[in-house]
Design a protein around this nucleic acid. Structure first.
Length: 196
DNA sequence: CAGTGGATGCTCT
DNA sequence: GAGCATCCACTGT
């Protein structure tokens, strides 16, 4: 992969076309900003097209339509009636794989995120998919947005960081797949240790 | 810490 | 009507 930190949208697209597990692992360490607020991605999960835990498993529906579109767009859905969760759509159009953004280490616009979250502790601003979307001000209105253009910014790290794989969180199917990826040693992840 | 339960809305069967 | 890719408050060690 080209490690020039300035990533052109076409370059981002090429990266996102790969195996969704490699994309999920590779996105850890990138900086993700929305309107200048955000931080370093420290936790992701891969949801493959043929994965019983994926919203796309079983075919296209109104809710998951964005997953079937081109890579590099945001798939945002309502979780438990209360929260929003944000994914990066991966793979070729029609493949319907996605990477769930589960946690950020805040680095930019931290006060904006504090205001939206209503908490002070930087470790609680974006540790968890529902918290992350609230901190960034993302909601269902952003479903389908193109991540290659403003207000979104995705910047790769100068060096690929050390990443740890573990099982995914909060799912009931395909629970054995180690498709959760965390930045090694980070205290900004949604749960400090992988579940047993 | 660990475990439990409630809030809350939408999707799909 | 069931089941969530969750979070928070609360309980008990």
């Amino acid at each position: 992969m080209n490690r020039d930190p300035k990533v052109a949208p076409t370059e981002l697209s090429a990266f996102l076309e790969g195996d969704v597990r490699e994309v999920a692992r590779g996105l850890v360490g990138w900086t993700f900003l929305v309107h200048g607020a955000g931080g370093v991605i420290v936790e992701t999960e891969a949801y493959r097209f043929d994965d019983p835990a994926s919203h796309a498993f079983g075919g296209r529906t109104p809710r998951n339509a964005t997953m079937f579109g081109p890579s590099g767009h945001l798939y945002v859905y309502r979780s438990y009636g209360i929260h929003w969760c944000a994914n990066v759509v991966c793979g070729a159009e029609g493949v319907a794989s996605a990477v769930l953004l589960r946690a950020l280490q805040p680095t930019h616009g931290v006060d904006d995120m504090r205001t939206r979250r209503g908490v002070d502790d930087a470790r609680l601003l974006a540790a968890g998919p529902g918290r992350l979307t609230q901190a960034l001000g993302l909601s269902g209105e952003n479903d389908g947005d193109d991540l290659g253009v403003p207000p979104y910014e995705l910047t790769m790290p100068p060096q690929p960081p050390e990443v740890v794989a573990s099982t995914r969180v909060g799912i009931t199917r395909a629970i054995e797949q180690p498709w959760r990826y965390t930045l090694a040693g980070s205290t900004f992840v949604s749960r400090p240790r992988p579940r047993p």
